[in-house]
Structure formats: C-alpha cells, structure tokens
C-alpha cells in the first residue's frame, strides 16, 4: 500500500474552520471520482484522503461557488445530515484539502 495514506501532518497550525466563510479546494488538490465518492490527493503534503460519498465530493468540488460553507451545505445537503457534513469539511480544512478563500 502506500505512504500517502500514512499521512504527513501538515506543517504548522491551520486557521480554525469557519463555516460562515467561503472555502475552496486547495489548488494543490486533485479529485478523482471513485465508486464510493472520490479520492482526493494533495500534491503538496502527498496526502491522500477518501471522500466517502458522492455528495461530499460534489460539495467539496463546488464549495467555491457558494458564499460560505453553510450556504454550500444548505444548497445541496439534507438538513439532518448537515452537521455530519460540516464535521467532514472541518477535517478537510484541518488537513488543508480545502482552505478559506
């Protein structure tokens, strides 16, 4: 298997996740659609992450076109699931797959 999976930790602290801010996919990240959702690879940290639902992959891809993370969630995620998606996005921000614009 591979090293990208045993991730390097990102350098330095990340800014706290703010769902009222606008975020986007880090320019160093590529997404590859997969049956379970998508694979995301960070060319900078050489880190790989599994986005384990097609909807999450879609939300991540489109983040930038919404004024805030919350707006992106409101637009496409059923209300009951939004807290879980917010947590998922927070962890992606923490590992720098997404960043505030």
């Amino acid at each position: 298997m591979d090293e990208a999976i045993a991730a390097r930790s990102p350098n330095g602290p990340t800014a706290p996740f703010d769902p009222t801010a606008r975020y986007r996919l880090d320019p160093d990240v590529a997404l590859r659609p997969e049956p379970f959702g998508a694979l995301a690879y960070h060319y900078g940290s050489r880190r790989l992450t599994f986005l384990r639902s097609a909807l999450l992959a879609e939300v991540v891809r489109d983040l930038e076109s919404h004024d805030s993370v919350d707006a992106a969630l409101t637009a496409s995620v059923p209300e009951a699931e939004r807290p879980a998606y917010r947590r998922a996005l927070a962890s992606l921000a923490d590992s720098r797959f997404i960043r505030a614009c």
Binding site: I5, F36, R47, F50, A84, R87, A88, S91
Partner: peptide
C-alpha cells in the same frame, strides 16, 4: 496517522470492503 477517510453518513459500508471491490484506477 491512518488513512484519513471522510465519511459523513454513517453507517457507510466499511472502507476496506469498498476498496476490496476495486477502484477505477490504482492508488
């Protein structure tokens, strides 16, 4: 650190089960 996997909806099939079924391209 383990494979980070971001799974908002639980219960989802286990990632290992999904991976065992193969990917569109190798990792």
């Amino acid at each position: 650190m383990p494979a980070s996997s971001t799974a908002p909806r639980l219960p989802a099939p286990r990632l290992t089960d999904q991976l065992k079924a193969g990917l569109d391209a190798p990792i």
